[in-house]
Nucleic acid binder design. Structure first.
Length: 787
DNA sequence: AGCGGTAATGCC
DNA sequence: GCATTACCGCTT
């Protein structure tokens, strides 16, 4: 009887297939990666178990070769992937593809045979395709070598070379001929999407891309190599991420109490724990001391920050705090090679480890996970929305639940759902009310700008005075405006049209520095100046404000010699720019820093005494149930940037609506008042945490004629199944951004008592899809925005 | 019937 | 994801 196994493909079409273990092959264990024949070529797959029933009418092929002697993925890891697949209603293969480092899911490998055994007529290296042609005797001989560790896996050189990253050398304009179309495409693509691997350039732009990129490297337009973050990581342990805040190691009474509570939770078998502490209250020290405790107990720890720069900063804190420990840094901007090495190292070395990283670090195979810490747990970056949608909090919860570990959620402004659970007693909570050391919470003031709305002024006289004074006294100020670019609308003076994106039908933002108008949704851009598509005229005026225009404006109103820096996604496109800007500002080379919400996150500038929120109303009135939560969190967070040193800080929030109840709560940094008001509103309208929400996104190409019929079919299906499942449905209705990248979009909001029924209803919809190749539907559980 | 292009299908 | 095959409109 043949020995049959199920192998799951970690690349399309992702399903599980049956293969035979040939006689020369060693025993298999689930979780083992193997090379399998698939169609005309070969692929990498993961053994998921024995084949229970034999497929009929197909000739079963044999496995080609194992990729490791001991399985890389243990049963827990496979179980985690299974559980994620069930939650997201997709296949395990897709999940594995999303959570494994790239090097560990490629089949483009060569087996190298040790030199001193190669003399016996064996080649020095052998490819999988060659292995399928070997005789049984040769295979048996090779397998002996493999099991003795004398035959090793090597990722193919070309494949590995394509893992290198391409980054821009300078900002536009570039020294390139206007008819060098391919070069311009690469430059534009890098500008819009940040550094990319040669591999992804080839996939997105075409097979010519790696060659063209190599030529461009010769002309100093781009650099091709390891990411700088990687290089810096080797040298001094961390990329330069601005100044690290000096930590006060002596625990305050509040911190000590929190520590005792968490230890007690851990002793009782773990669970979630909320640390609600104002900005600057010393949450980091608390995490580090808890980490020390866990490691002493022989258990591993994962510390997560919402973004790379903050993870690097935390990593540096860890290195300073622990002298005799080798922590691991893991995030999406490290090279695939590095990430792969970390993954295998964690599998092979079972000792307790401390991992610092961003959300993807949650999937690392650390042994005996004692604690997961999520700093700034309310941050939206903890939810991944593109490709595979997952909420890191849920994954973290899943992981600690299995190991009896602790999930520590820390924030000054917790997620409403988290705090609600704490209020109900479902999650224990430790509160830190005082800032550590001398610094005190800043004073917050409202500035009414209602009478400014028709003039060209952005800042009220009060704001301008405060800025001038801060600069005069040699201190620093931060100005936040949550909108990048120069002006969000370009208005044609001749025919009163605005410049719109033909693919998305939204206004295109003018970027003065790039000399382009850009669609902020799909990235399409045109060079500017341009002619009006309606009347052919060229007289546009910019309407509204973006960070770029604010920067220009500030340079005009502030005294001669004042330096203004800007920090937003545009300014930080080039790899090192973010660190350069943060570094320059913390060294005092500029007095004012203008930026988007990027500047609100975790940075420590002791000389900043003034924070200005240019438009506090932005984002407050969006038709989204979380908009006030988001605004409150952002404002408290950015206010926390002021007065972190010895000098007291001041925050000015400009608003056209000073009566809004939110302001009082922000002024007093009164999270609980905000929470009480918000939870009342949520209860009244039945929003989370009083219900579960799911957003179903439907889209099809704008020229697909049967699209309308598909939508009515979905509507009919929903009508039929929603009531029996107890799910209330809004839509399908055209999405607020009704067209994106040439696809018409529809949204459908599900509200119900539990996730199971929301999933089932989605399942019915997916089944009713008349043309899955044209009509795409996807499920987003607990969406960040319902827009 | 013969051609070139594209959509649909199978892959164990 | 990729190769093979089925299908379509159109020429000869």
């Amino acid at each position: 009887m043949a020995d049959l196994w199920q192998v799951t493909l970690v690349s399309p079409p992702y399903q599980s297939w049956t293969y035979e273990r040939p006689s020369f092959f060693p025993e298999l264990k689930p979780g083992q990666r193997v090379i399998i024949p698939f169609g005309k070529s070969h692929r990498m797959g993961v053994v998921t178990g024995r084949a229970e029933q034999v497929p009929e009418g197909v000739e079963i092929k044999s496995l080609i070769w194992p990729l490791e002697v001991e399985p890389l993925l243990n049963a827990d890891f496979i179980e985690m992937a299974d559980s994620l697949a069930a939650r997201q209603m997709t296949s395990v293969g897709r999940i594995l593809e999303a959570i494994l480092p790239r090097g560990l899911r490629t089949a483009a490998v060569t087996f190298r045979i040790d030199k001193h055994v190669a003399r016996q007529k064996l080649p020095g290296s052998i490819r999988p395709s060659k292995l399928t042609k070997c005789s049984p005797d040769e295979l048996t001989e090779l397998m002996e070598l493999w099991l003795a560790g004398r035959m090793r896996v090597r990722i193919n050189a070309q494949r590995e070379a394509e893992e290198r990253f391409v980054s821009l050398v300078s900002d536009p304009p570039w020294a390139v001929r206007p008819n060098a179309k391919r070069q311009i495409r690469i430059l534009e693509y890098l500008l819009d999407n940040g550094p990319q691997s040669l591999y992804s350039l080839r996939h997105v732009l075409g097979d010519w891309a790696p060659d063209t990129a190599a030529k461009m490297e010769g002309r100093d337009l781009v650099t091709v190599g390891e990411l700088t973050a990687d290089a810096l990581d080797e040298v001094d342990g961390t990329a330069a991420c601005g100044e690290t805040e000096p930590l006060q190691y002596e625990l305050t009474e509040e911190q000590q109490n929190a520590m005792d509570d968490m230890r007690a939770s851990l002793a009782k078998g773990g669970g979630a724990h909320l640390v609600h502490g104002v900005t600057g209250s010393g949450k980091t020290v608390l995490y580090l001391e808890m980490a020390r405790y866990c490691l002493e107990q022989g258990r591993s720890v994962i510390l997560l920050a919402p973004e790379v720069a903050l993870a690097c900063k935390l990593y540096r804190n860890v290195k300073e705090h622990f002298s005799n420990l080798k922590p691991v840094l893991y995030h999406g901007y490290q090279s695939p090679k590095k990430r792969e090495a970390i993954f295998t190292d964690l599998v092979r070395n079972a000792e307790p480890r401390l991992v610092v990283g961003t959300r993807s670090a949650l999937f690392l195979p650390v042994h005996d996970l004692g604690m997961v810490v999520m700093d700034e747990e309310h941050d939206e970056s903890f939810k991944q929305e593109e490709r595979l949608a997952y909420q890191a909090k849920e994954v973290g919860w899943y992981r600690v639940e299995r190991t009896g570990g602790l999930l520590v959620l820390g924030s000054a402004t917790p997620d409403i759902k988290t705090f609600h659970a704490a209020q109900n007693g479902a999650i224990p909570v430790s509160t830190l009310k005082k800032r550590v050391g001398k610094s005190v919470l800043p004073e917050v003031e409202l500035v009414d700008i209602a009478d400014l709305s028709n003039s060209k002024q952005v800042f009220s006289p009060t704001t301008i005075d405060a800025l001038k004074e801060t600069v005069k006294e040699g201190r620093q100020a931060i100005v936040m405006l949550n909108r990048r670019g120069y002006a969000p609308l370009m208005y044609c003076l001749d025919c009163s049209e605005t410049v719109r994106c033909p693919e998305c039908e939204v206004g295109m933002t003018y970027h003065k520095g790039r000399e382009r108008v850009v669609c902020h949704y799909c990235g399409l851009s045109y060079s500017y100046p341009l002619l009006c598509s309606k009347c052919g005229g060229g007289n546009f005026i910019p309407m509204g404000e973006g960070t770029e225009r604010l920067e220009e404006h500030l340079e005009e109103i502030l005294p001669e010699g004042t330096n203004v820096l800007r920090l937003d996604r545009d300014a930080t496109r080039r790899q090192e720019r973010m660190e350069e800007i943060l570094g320059a500002f913390s060294r005092g080379e500029a007095q004012v820093l203008v930026g988007t919400q990027m500047i609100s996150k975790g940075h420590h500038f002791p000389k900043v005494t003034l924070v200005v929120v240019a438009d506090g109303d932005l984002g407050l009135n969006l038709p989204d149930y979380r908009s006030s939560e988001r605004t409150f969190q952002l404002l408290v967070q950015v206010a926390g940037r002021a007065g972190r040193g010895d000098m007291p800080g001041k925050v000015l929030i400009q608003t056209r609506n000073p009566q809004h109840p939110l302001w009082n709560e922000v002024l007093n940094s009164d999270y609980e008042a905000f929470f009480q008001r918000e939870i009342g509103r949520r209860k009244m309208f039945g929003y989370p945490p009083f219900s579960k929400l799911a957003l179903v996104r439907i889209s099809y190409p704008a020229d697909f004629k049967q699209g309308g019929a598909a939508i009515s079919l979905f509507a009919k299906t929903l009508k039929q199944y929603s009531q029996p499942l107890g799910v209330s449905v809004l839509g399908p209705a055209p999405a607020p951004l009704s067209m994106l990248r040439g696809r018409l979009r529809f949204n459908c909001l599900f509200k119900g008592a539990d996730w199971k029924n929301l999933r089932m209803l989605f399942g019915h919809m997916a089944q009713a899809n008349p043309d899955p190749s044209k009509v795409r539907i996807s499920l987003d559980l607990d969406p960040l925005t319902t827009l």
